[in-house]
């Protein structure tokens, strides 16, 4: 348990430093840390640091609420995590969210965590959600170059 906790603390500390403009440069960042793919949609009001440490508890709590009580109006739904956090490949189709380097495995590989959720839960959004992703407006030139600047910074 102590080592696990240490992992989380180290991981969130390092990630925090990386994300919020610590001393690490882009190169050091990618060498030391898992690269977490960017999400679409609105960020969590709780903040990334909170989500990094607590997402498993939130998921477990809301899972039981849906399963046992039939509550469909939950805040931490696994299918919604997938919908926002899935990446699209060069073919514009969603990449399974648990494949190497993808959102639900980048950190887990780093921290040696194994989850079984995707034996049952789909690793990609449903087709209609995929279509919603595909029909997202393309970024305009200014946004695109700003994004590229940010990535190459």
């Amino acid at each position: 348990m102590i080592t696990r906790l240490a992992t989380i603390l180290v991981l969130s500390g390092l990630l925090g430093a990386g994300l919020f403009g610590g001393a690490a440069t882009a190169q050091e960042h990618s060498a030391l840390l898992p690269v977490v793919p960017k999400a679409t949609g609105e960020a969590h009001p709780e903040g990334n640091a909170f989500m990094r440490i607590n997402h498993m508890k939130l998921l477990r709590h809301d899972r039981d609420d849906t399963m046992r009580n039939g509550n469909r109006d939950i805040d931490y739904s696994l299918k919604e995590c997938v919908a926002c956090h899935v990446q699209t490949g060069a073919d514009a189709l969603p990449i399974p969210i648990n494949s190497e380097g993808q959102f639900c495995s980048a950190c887990h590989e780093f921290a040696a965590v194994k989850i079984d959720c995707f034996q049952c839960h789909n690793t990609r959004p449903e087709l209609n959600e995929t279509q919603a992703l595909l029909s997202r407006p393309l970024p305009d030139a200014a946004a695109l170059s700003a994004y590229l600047d940010e990535v190459t910074e």
Partner: peptide, 23 residues
Amino acid sequence: DLEDQKSYAPRGKGTVESCTLCV
């Protein structure tokens, strides 16, 4: 082993299942 389950009806190897009355 299964793949590409419905997101509202997750299913996976090693578990039992039955009609859910489309809960």
